[in-house]
Amino acid sequence: MNKQRAKEIASSPIMANVTYNGIPIYIQNVDEKNETAQIYPLNQPDQEQEVSLESLIEQTH
Score class of each variant (00 low, 15 high):
residue 55 S to R: 06
residue 34 N to K: 15
residue 10 A to S: 13
residue 47 Q to W: 09
residue 23 I to H: 01
residue 42 L to S: 04
residue 50 E to G: 00
residue 35 E to M: 03
residue 19 T to S: 08
residue 50 E to W: 04
residue 32 E to L: 03
residue 51 V to K: 01
residue 60 T to L: 09
residue 9 I to D: 00
residue 42 L to K: 13
residue 35 E to D: 07
residue 46 D to P: 00
residue 28 Q to W: 05
residue 54 E to C: 06
residue 6 A to Q: 02
residue 21 N to T: 04
residue 19 T to G: 02
residue 59 Q to T: 09
residue 56 L to Q: 00
residue 52 S to Q: 12
residue 58 E to W: 00
residue 4 Q to R: 11
residue 6 A to L: 02
residue 28 Q to Y: 09
residue 56 L to M: 01
residue 16 A to M: 08
residue 5 R to Q: 14
residue 19 T to W: 02
residue 9 I to M: 02
residue 28 Q to E: 14
residue 8 E to F: 02
residue 40 Y to Q: 01
residue 43 N to A: 11
residue 52 S to W: 06
residue 12 S to N: 15
residue 60 T to F: 07
residue 6 A to G: 03
residue 13 P to W: 06
residue 50 E to F: 03
residue 9 I to Y: 00
residue 14 I to R: 13
residue 3 K to S: 14
residue 3 K to H: 10
residue 49 Q to V: 06
residue 27 I to Q: 00
residue 55 S to C: 04
residue 48 E to Y: 09
residue 26 Y to C: 12
residue 27 I to V: 09
residue 60 T to Q: 11
residue 1 M to I: 05
residue 48 E to Q: 13
residue 52 S to T: 05
residue 17 N to D: 15
residue 7 K to L: 14
residue 53 L to H: 05
residue 47 Q to S: 12
residue 50 E to L: 08
residue 27 I to L: 08
residue 58 E to N: 00
residue 20 Y to C: 10
residue 31 D to C: 06
residue 49 Q to K: 15
residue 15 M to I: 10
residue 19 T to D: 08
residue 59 Q to F: 06
residue 16 A to Y: 08
residue 27 I to H: 01
residue 45 P to F: 09
residue 3 K to V: 10
residue 19 T to C: 09
residue 16 A to H: 14
residue 55 S to V: 03
residue 24 P to V: 08
residue 57 I to E: 11
residue 32 E to I: 02
residue 36 T to G: 00
residue 47 Q to E: 12
residue 2 N to W: 06
residue 7 K to D: 05
residue 3 K to L: 13
residue 29 N to K: 14
residue 3 K to T: 12
residue 33 K to C: 01
residue 30 V to T: 02
residue 12 S to F: 01
residue 38 Q to F: 10
residue 4 Q to D: 14
residue 44 Q to I: 07
residue 4 Q to A: 13
residue 34 N to R: 15
residue 10 A to W: 02
residue 46 D to R: 13
residue 42 L to I: 11
residue 35 E to K: 04
residue 20 Y to F: 15
residue 53 L to Q: 05
residue 20 Y to I: 06
residue 37 A to F: 02
residue 57 I to R: 11
residue 49 Q to F: 07
residue 2 N to T: 07
residue 15 M to F: 07
residue 48 E to D: 06
residue 33 K to G: 04
residue 21 N to P: 00
residue 38 Q to N: 12
residue 38 Q to C: 11
residue 54 E to T: 08
residue 34 N to V: 04
residue 33 K to L: 07
residue 43 N to W: 08
residue 7 K to Y: 07
residue 28 Q to D: 13
residue 8 E to T: 01
residue 13 P to G: 06
residue 15 M to E: 14
residue 2 N to M: 06
residue 29 N to A: 10
residue 44 Q to A: 14
residue 15 M to Q: 13
residue 52 S to P: 04
residue 57 I to N: 13
residue 52 S to D: 13
residue 46 D to Q: 14
residue 11 S to A: 12
residue 51 V to T: 03
residue 28 Q to K: 11
residue 20 Y to D: 08
residue 56 L to R: 01
residue 29 N to I: 05
residue 5 R to N: 07
residue 26 Y to G: 04
residue 30 V to C: 01
residue 11 S to K: 14
residue 5 R to H: 04
residue 4 Q to N: 12
residue 35 E to F: 00
